[in-house]
Amino acid sequence: MSFGKTFNRKDRYVMLSPRLLEILRTYWLDAHPRDWLFPGDIPGRPISRDAVELACRLARQRSGIQKPITPHSLRHAFATHLLETGTDMRRIQLLMGHRALSTTARYLELATGTVCATASPFDLLPHPASTSSPPTPEYF
């Protein structure tokens, strides 16, 4: 997994992929925000939590998805996708800012298909050479 930059915010590491960085640069060049990358309705203030939640609701309605979508559900999806693509639990723990590994382990329940599909080390052992079966006695 390769990501451009990593920012530490309150013990959470937020990955910034090169692709997203490119999109944000284009947005910045077009919008020229002054104080905040995502300014809020109040001058000099960032976008509010309520505005982010409203954007999630509108996106859900426009997409036709029936389940509720919140910023927190996107966070859960992010962690689950990391787990499903093979990222180790300790790294996910650091990225999510969890103090206890048991908190991060909750994502194992969400990714049971991936966890159950893990190959057993026994399956990685070479197959023994086939031996010819002993001759069966012939009875007349």
Score class of each variant (00 low, 15 high):
M1F: 05
S2M: 09
S2K: 07
F3N: 00
F3D: 00
K5Y: 09
K5L: 11
R9K: 13
K10Q: 09
Y13D: 07
Y13L: 13
P18T: 07
P18H: 11
R19T: 08
L20W: 07
L21W: 06
L21C: 06
Y27D: 00
H32F: 06
H32S: 12
H32R: 15
P33L: 02
R34Y: 05
D35L: 01
W36Y: 15
F38K: 09
P39M: 05
G44S: 13
G44T: 11
R45D: 05
R45L: 12
S48D: 01
D50A: 11
V52S: 00
E53L: 12
L54Q: 06
L54Y: 05
A55P: 02
A55Q: 02
R57H: 09
L58G: 08
A59K: 13
R60L: 00
Q61R: 12
Q61V: 04
Q61F: 01
R62W: 00
I65Q: 09
Q66P: 00
Q66N: 07
K67R: 14
P68F: 08
I69E: 03
I69V: 15
I69Q: 11
I69W: 10
T70G: 06
P71I: 10
P71F: 04
S73N: 10
L74A: 11
R75Q: 13
H76T: 03
H76I: 12
F78W: 15
A79R: 02
T80S: 06
T80D: 05
L82A: 06
E84F: 04
E84R: 15
E84C: 02
T85V: 04
T85D: 08
G86M: 10
D88K: 03
D88H: 04
D88C: 01
M89L: 15
R90N: 09
I92E: 03
I92D: 02
I92M: 10
Q93S: 05
L95N: 01
H98W: 02
H98V: 02
R99H: 14
R99K: 14
R99T: 14
A100W: 12
S102D: 14
T103A: 13
A105D: 05
A105V: 04
A105W: 06
Y107H: 08
Y107L: 06
E109Q: 13
E109F: 02
L110H: 05
A111M: 02
A111G: 04
T112V: 11
G113V: 03
G113R: 14
T114K: 14
T114N: 09
T114P: 01
C116Y: 12
C116M: 14
T118Y: 03
F122N: 11
D123Y: 00
D123E: 15
L125D: 13
L125Y: 14
H127C: 07
A129M: 10
S133W: 10
F140I: 07
